[in-house]
């Protein structure tokens, strides 16, 4: 079952095959969780959203378009896009209800929510690379975070991302570029790539000469 195409798995799922479900979950859940988390942040709702997305898959699986059938990659792309779209819509619903409630309860906002209270840069923090990456990703604006997650972790193309998010391809490219710019600056200490512009040309030149 591990090697079955997504189309085959969907067909098996329709027949109630639980291995198909497990395989589909294994294949797709991580990146959907990432996607939902990019939109909803930490704190709970995102796992439910992904579970709900899979529930939708059980209830009303998408029909495979004729041209995708039998082509493992197209089937994968099609299903992924569908799952991402459903996940995104559910996230938006969650956010809408949250914001609506917030409008009613504006006065309750008594906590300080400034996000820049961190004392970055101490050794302890840097020890955990993964935590640092998570943190820097979380600092990005949500729309940049979403496209980066879809591109880098979901492996969706710009075109697919545009389709999933309802943005224009140009916007997706711009968001990816901005997001990566910010990340490569904030994660620079963890990457032993050449130092940012300026210093780098010197290093390169000396290496070339040596």
């Amino acid at each position: 079952m591990d090697q079955a195409s997504d189309g085959t798995l969907l067909a098996a799922l329709e027949r109630g095959n639980s291995t198909a479900l497990t395989t589909l979950l294994d294949r797709h859940q991580a990146v959907l969780l990432r996607h939902a988390r990019a939109l909803l942040g930490e704190g709970g709702a995102y796992e439910d959203v992904v579970q709900e997305a899979f529930l939708r898959l059980l209830e009303k699986p998408p029909a495979m378009p004729e041209e995708a059938r039998g082509n493992e990659l197209l089937e994968r792309a099609h299903l992924r896009s569908w799952l991402h779209k459903v996940t995104r819509n559910l996230c938006m619903d969650t956010l809408r209800s949250e914001t609506r409630r917030r409008a009613r309860e504006e006065s309750v906002a008594s906590y300080d929510v400034s996000r820049d209270g961190r004392s970055g840069g101490d050794l302890a923090e840097q020890l955990d690379t993964r935590a640092a990456v998570e943190r820097e990703l979380a600092k990005l604006p949500a729309d940049q975070r979403e496209v980066l997650v879809l591109r880098l972790l979901g492996e969706r193309s710009y075109k697919e991302i545009a389709e999933i998010t309802g943005k224009k391809i140009g916007t997706v490219g711009w968001l990816v570029s901005e997001g990566l710019k910010a990340l490569s600056a904030s994660l620079a200490p963890l990457v032993d790539a050449p130092a940012p512009a300026g210093a780098s040309s010197v290093v390169r030149a000396s290496r070339a000469n040596g």
């Binding site: 969780l33 990456v133 990703l137 980066l148 040309s201 390169r204």
Partner: peptide, 24 residues
């Protein structure tokens, strides 16, 4: 060129550190 190397390294870092599958 330096920017490219940095981008690739950043992409690698993000993918490398976040790709080990969160699960429900």
């Amino acid at each position: 060129r330096a920017e490219r190397a940095r981008l690739e390294a950043t992409i690698g870092l993000v993918q490398g550190s976040l790709s080990d599958g969160e699960r429900l």
